[in-house]
Write a protein that binds this DNA or RNA. Structure first.
Length: 392
RNA sequence: GUGAUUGUAGCUCAGUUGGUUAGAGCAUCAGAUUGUGAUUCUGAGGGUCGUGGGUUCGAGCCCCAUCAUUCACC
């Protein structure tokens, strides 16, 4: 235990999240910065691998560090609350210790599950009544309850409990939903102020902008969220099926309204080209299941474009998966071999595909950062987007 | 050699009393996937029903022959 968890991160003095803006691109809204939390410093723009249930599926914590070069990962409040449950997490001393990950963690609040589990939900002003997908048991999530759970999980960055309205949503519904999210936000901040940090490091609440695709609602939401003075702000309710152009428009609007001196987090996005476009609009943080989920299902994102490694044309291609990124798995295993593993449903295939895709995503945001600092970001981005989108 | 058994998609098999264009699972090929209910989902291609004859308005199914298969007994 001591060898793994006795590191200085736990001994450092507790401090709230600090964001340092290092460079701003003159020809776009792209920025390069540093986010500091008690478990470490994150270079932005950053991509955060999704580890829903205390695990980035098929990828070990060691691989996340050494191969993927992940700086921060996600956990999910809804899933961790159902399994292993609060008793285990509390006794473990929080999620970091439980899973053996000493770098920063962000937890999503379960707000998205209100949307994705819509069949079994009942929404009221009080909160959301869910039915567990595991055993059918009923649970009430209120903003207070969700803050309490996230205290027990102990992530460095925790998300407000919101409602993510589906696309399309009519104006009346989107407006009502946004108002509910704002009410819940007040209760999240209220509860957080009443409860202490549990494990000797600080937790930072990010509120979430909603408002669907309606500019006046997004404006109102941005203003409301900004008034909270949070350490960072998130944009939710995008990449839920709307056209890409619409996502970019809303994202651009939100970035222009949210404070420049705080990190901006675009939730759930996206493809590699989505990420570059949104960096140009002023986003600093991303998360998405795409590199892992799609990787497990044979879709690879590479420096030369998108590959469906299942396709017959790769059966005899013994070239590396991708030799232009810093990842031993991508460099040393061939396309033909990975195709064979996935076709044969070998477990190693899931790992190689996931590690490669994640390493590629991390490589991409690091390249973006370099070009922001070098001053040629837009030129680079435009070339890169075309190449990344190519189907090979 | 005798008796029985089984021959239907690449594989394992359904197929009603004889009745539209013969189905399934797996495999193959392709598509989907955006704050993970995802080892998932969707679609496509693929058949001279062992072969040859017969009965019938109509045969995968009934009859005869033949070839192959598996088993049992000499």
């Amino acid at each position: 235990m001591g060898r793994f968890f006795g590191g200085s991160a736990y001994l450092r003095a507790m401090a709230a999240l600090h964001f340092e803006l290092r460079h701003t691109d003159p020809s776009s809204s792209a920025r390069a910065g540093l986010i500091s939390v008690d478990h470490g410093t994150i270079e932005t723009p950053i991509f955060m691998p999704v580890g829903t249930a205390g695990s980035v599926k098929a990828v070990s914590q060691q691989q996340l560090k050494e191969d993927v070069h992940a700086e921060i990962i996600l956990g999910n409040t809804y899933h961790l609350y159902l399994r292993p449950g609060l008793q285990v997490l509390e006794q473990a001393g929080g999620l970091h210790r439980f899973m053996g990950w000493d770098r920063p963690i962000l937890t999503d609040s379960g707000g998205y599950q209100v949307f994705s589990l819509a069949n079994n939900r009942k929404l009221t002003d009080e909160g959301a009544l869910f039915q567990s997908h595991i055993d059918g048991s009923k649970h009430l999530f209120t903003p207070e309850k969700v803050m309490d759970i996230q205290r027990v999980i102990g992530a460095d960055i925790i998300m407000a409990f919101d409602e993510c309205p589906p696309y399309p949503s009519d104006y009346a519904y989107a407006k009502k939903s946004m108002a509910l999210t704002h009410q819940w936000l007040d209760r999240c901040f209220g509860r957080l102020a009443e409860t202490p940090d549990k494990y000797g490091y600080s937790q930072n609440l990010f509120p979430i902008v909603q408002g669907s695709v309606y500019p006046d609602l997004r404006k109102a939401s941005c203003e409301y969220i900004t008034s909270k003075g949070a350490a960072g702000n998130a944009i939710g309710g995008l990449s839920v099926g709307e056209p890409e152009a619409e996502m970019y428009q809303i994202c651009a609007q939100c970035c222009s309204l949210l404070p420049a001196d705080r990190p901006r987090y675009l939730m759930g996005v996206g493809t590699p080209w989505n990420i570059l476009e949104n960096i140009a609009l002023g986003i600093d943080m991303f998360d998405c299941v795409m590199p892992t989920r799609n990787g497990r299902n044979a879709m690879l994102f590479t420096s030369n474009g998108v590959i469906n490694i299942d396709n017959l044309k790769w059966a005899n291609d013994f070239s590396p998966i991708d030799d232009s990124i810093d990842c031993a798995m991508s460099n040393n295993y061939s396309k033909a071999y990975l195709r064979h593993l996935l076709k044969s449903k070998e477990i190693l295939g899931l790992t190689i595909a996931s590690v490669h895709n994640l390493a590629f995503y991390l490589h991409l945001v690091k390249e973006a950062r370099k070009h922001i600092i070098a001053g040629d970001f837009m030129w680079w981005k435009n070339e890169e987007v075309e190449r990344l989108k190519t189907r090979r």
